[in-house]
């Protein structure tokens, strides 16, 4: 256990040399590299922080924009819903109007058909009643219906002096069915309409009765009118006196109309 002086100094020198060599080959390059890396990492961190801040700002902008889009979407959605609801209401209203219109048309059509049916029924019923009545009276009682109708008509013609029939006393130009201008030789005209043919004798009886009713000079004309069911009519001076089955048929018409108007299950 001794100290060799030469070795001592040699080791001091060796240590100093080693220190210088390591400073040259190890510490300087390593430290430089580590410092550069540290600076690079610091710069990268700074850049990352700035990018993070930018990204955060961008995210905030995106968030606000997305929120705005969501708000707009909600508004548009509610507007679309309102519009759809309004459209739906319009469509429903249109459908209702159309249905009501169709119902009204159908109702009018039914009414027309009913009126047509009733008219036709009335006509046919009148004809049938007339035909049946005529045959029944003829076969069972030996009575001519047309003659009896005419007799009844003549008998029921009111007198010219009775109230309400003053107009029959003076047939005027307005009563002319032709509407010709009155001129020289022109005479007022009275018209007898019947639903059946009448013979000359009966015509004379009727003319005599009418001339008793109406004052003054006038022409009497006879017309065949099948629309007058089982009846006879006198038209003169804008007035009409008639007897026919029309009143009875109107009663039948009213009864049938009430029957049509009655709802199912409703008591009669």
């Amino acid at each position: 256990m001794h100290i060799d002086l030469f070795t001592l100094f040699a080791q001091i020198v060796n240590f100093v040399v080693l220190m210088l060599l390591l400073k040259r080959f190890l510490y300087k390059p390593i430290l430089r590299t580590m410092d550069e890396r540290e600076h690079r990492i610091g710069a990268d961190l700074d850049e990352a922080e700035s990018k993070l801040a930018a990204a955060t700002r961008e995210a905030a902008v995106c968030h606000s924009e997305r929120q705005e889009i969501e708000d707009k979407r909600g508004e548009m959605l509610s507007a679309a819903q309102e519009e759809a609801a309004a459209w739906r209401r319009d469509l429903i209203q249109q459908a209702r109007d159309e249905i009501e219109e169709r119902q009204e048309r159908w109702r009018q059509s039914v009414e027309r058909e009913k009126q047509s049916f009733l008219s036709d029924l009335r006509q046919r019923a009148g004809e049938q009643v007339y035909e049946i009545s005529r045959r029944v009276l003829e076969d069972l009682a030996g009575v001519d219906l047309e003659r009896h109708i005419i007799d009844t008509f003549i008998a029921r013609l009111p007198g010219a002096q009775e109230p309400g029939f003053e107009a029959f006393s003076t047939p005027n130009a307005e009563a002319t069915p032709t509407g010709d201008e009155p001129g020289a030789g022109w005479k007022p005209e009275a018209v007898i309409c019947t639903a059946f043919e009448i013979d000359d004798e009966t015509r004379e009886r009727i003319e005599a009765a009418v001339r008793l009713l109406l004052a003054g000079d006038f022409n009497l004309r006879f017309e065949l009118s099948p629309d007058l069911i089982c009846g006879i009519e006198l038209r003169a001076g804008g007035q009409t006196a008639a007897w026919s089955l029309q009143n009875y048929l109107e009663t039948l018409d009213e009864n049938l109309s009430r029957a049509f108007a009655r709802k199912p299950g409703e008591e009669r």
Binding site: I3, D4, L5, L8, F9, Q11, I12, N14, V16
Partner: peptide
């Protein structure tokens, strides 16, 4: 090992 020499350790201690 050189560190097993008192001369070396003394040299390092002197340093």
């Amino acid at each position: 090992p050189p560190t097993g020499s008192l001369s070396t350790t003394t040299a390092l201690a002197l340093c």
